[in-house]
Design a protein around this nucleic acid. Structure first.
Lengths: 198, 198
DNA sequence: TCACGTCTCTACCATTTGGTAGAGAAATCT
DNA sequence: AGATTTCTCTACCAAATGGTAGAGACGTGA
């Protein structure tokens, strides 16, 4: 593996295409064209289409985990600030790499084996988040509710804003830098209000 | 059109398949098999695959609009109750027809023409929701924020909980009737907390 | 120089795709 | 009865799909 760049370029491109257009509707030829190689070059680097999908999911999980782990450790003691940091961290790829959350969302459309593959990668962070929410609720520093479902709701909200620009546009939103900042601001306020202890 | 039942059966089945597996990965043969006819029967009823997609989107919009319109008119004056009614209304298909919200979410993956088609159907309700939120905020009965983005956030949250059972399962959720009731309860509490005026 | 691993290519294949052409059954109308 | 419309079928087709086979270019170490 003297030259890993082709492999990486394939992974990056596939992540973008899978994430924006959906895994099922992107062919190996589509990816090859975008990278600038032939389909058979992809099949040299990856055993099969299915193998490529798993590798891309790993690639995406890597990227997401780094960002989230850093955010979890970041800000002080106050749980609302900490959740806010994670929300911002997950929102960052929305601007810098829109396909990332789109790909994670694609998990619903994949077969069991790919689902389990991705789950294995994300479960550690997920469990940490849920147990953190649990402990802060017990201390009365977050609105009391089911922490597991709450985590899911938070995910839905953040991921939705990032992966459905089309829907937001239907609501009158404008897809530019100012619009994105606006969404981020509202998202943070929304989550903060939803978690405020009462 | 003496016997509309075949056409309707095709629409219903296509809605389910498109919504659960994604529009791009469902072939005419898949739909035909599920209905129990041949692909050519589908092409008799619908000009092309693209025509079928538009018809299915119409079918979905019809179903969704009826539910939402009724909910908007339902409960009393208090905006939190009214929003709650709409949330419940949109959540109902999650139980009864999981594919419905899944299909709406698919809009991100469709081409411009289908997007505009669906937008045309939903824009009236969407605008009504946004202007309602606006007026209630002005009266100080909802947390003040950007009503347009708020509408989008609400949509994301509700739609996400309904269309991503796989993700919820990763968070530890169990996909049965009790689990669904639990999600609904938490969802309502979450939205209520997020909208509470301060 | 020779052998070897790395990397990309052309050529090909079986299957599936959306779509066309047109026949046949059956109900409906005149 | 005869003609027409409604509905579903069989038989195809060209294009695209994931995947196989195998050759050629390239650098590296012995």
């Amino acid at each position: 593996m003297v030259n890993g760049s082709t492999r990486i370029r394939i992974l990056d491109t596939a992540l973008d295409l899978f994430g924006t257009r959906g895994v099922g509707t992107v062919s190996l030829d589509d990816i090859a064209d975008a990278v600038g190689v032939r389909k058979q070059t992809i099949l040299y680097w990856f055993k099969s289409r299915s193998g490529l999908i798993d590798a891309v999911l790993d690639h995406a999980a890597d990227e997401l985990l780094v960002v989230v782990e850093a955010a979890i450790r970041s800000r002080g003691d106050e749980p609302l600030d900490r959740v806010d940091a994670v929300v911002c961290a997950v929102f960052r790829p929305v601007v810098r790499r829109p396909a990332l959350l789109g790909l994670i969302r694609e998990v619903t459309r994949l077969d069991e084996s790919h689902i389990n593959h991705l789950r294995g990668r994300l479960s550690v962070v997920v469990e940490r988040c849920v147990s953190y929410l649990t402990s802060e609720m017990e201390k009365g520093r977050l609105r009391t509710c089911d922490p597991m479902v709450l985590a899911g709701l938070l995910y839905s909200t953040v991921s939705g804003t990032g992966t459905e620009p089309i829907v937001l546009e239907t609501f009158g939103w404008e897809p530019n830098a100012a619009g994105l900042r606006q969404v981020r601001r509202e998202l943070r306020g929304f989550v903060r209000a939803a978690l405020q202890p009462n």
